[in-house]
């Protein structure tokens, strides 16, 4: 049996860029920062491509919800090996609940057997959308995945949990969210980047989703975290131990 996989991707700031709050606290200053595919989404795309290469998958659809520039990230996913893309276009960034509602409509239209999402995006760091989408679809969820094994009508997912590793068996259709150690994404080869330009990319205005995406929360202020006082350099292990005893008093 081969299945159809839907992969969700998000356009985010490049993970190397260090953001700062705007002076008026109304948001963060991302200036001319490079924009990339959210690293966890890249891992999701890579995993779908690997499943296809193993023969268990016949089509990979990439979906993003965002501004028209998100086409760049969809094209990047197509260059990695996805077959076609869908952009749900909106100029307003959506909260995870609204994202999940839009993605539910896409899933109902496309009828995939598996959805792979990043566990979180590195801007909002919410870690919510995948679980909410699974709940809305009534599907099982395998969060923080570090290993997947696709079987006939189910998928085994090994999860990185606080106490170690846990393996669950999920009935298909199912949703997976990726953790860092699931795989190391490949770089797209130039011929594949060229080929990706000709792969189908459907753009759908968000109003066509017919869901309520109005915000439930409001960001009142963005500020710098508490800054640590810069410390001192010690010249020897002996001096370090003396300071930890006498000054910091953290050891006896």
């Amino acid at each position: 049996m081969t299945i159809k996989v839907l992969v969700t991707v998000k356009r985010t700031i490049d993970y190397n860029f260090k953001v700062r709050p705007l002076a008026d606290g109304s948001g963060v200053d991302i200036g001319n920062a490079k924009m990339s595919m959210n690293p966890f989404c890249e891992i999701a795309v890579e995993e779908a491509v690997r499943l296809k290469e193993k023969g268990g998958v016949d089509e990979i659809i990439v979906v993003s919800v965002g501004a028209k520039e998100s086409q760049e990230q969809i094209r990047a996913a197509l260059a990695l090996g996805a077959d076609r893309g869908i952009l749900i276009e909106t100029d307003t960034p959506l909260e995870p609940l609204a994202l999940a509602k839009c993605l539910k409509v896409v899933a109902e239209n496309e009828q995939p057997q598996l959805i792979i999402s990043g566990k979180q995006s590195i801007d909002g760091d919410n870690n919510q959308t995948g679980q909410m989408l699974a709940a809305l679809l009534g599907w099982p969820q395998g969060t923080f995945a570090s290993e997947l094994l696709l079987l006939d009508d189910c998928i085994d997912v090994t999860r990185e949990v606080d106490s170690g590793l846990q393996t669950l068996r999920l009935k298909l259709p199912a949703l997976i969210t990726t953790d860092l150690r699931l795989n190391v994404p490949r770089y797209a080869a130039l011929p594949n980047i060229m080929k990706a330009k000709r792969k189908p990319l459907q753009i759908i205005p968000i109003v066509d989703m017919g869901v309520d995406v109005s915000p439930r929360t409001q960001c009142i202020k963005v500020e710098l975290p508490k800054q640590r006082q810069s410390g001192v350099k010690v010249s020897s292990v002996q001096e370090l131990v003396e300071k930890l005893k006498a000054e910091a008093k953290v050891i006896l």
Partner: peptide, 9 residues
């Protein structure tokens, strides 16, 4: 947010 680089209210 942003890996702790900013704090949002």
């Amino acid at each position: 947010i942003y890996a702790g680089n900013s704090i949002a209210t």
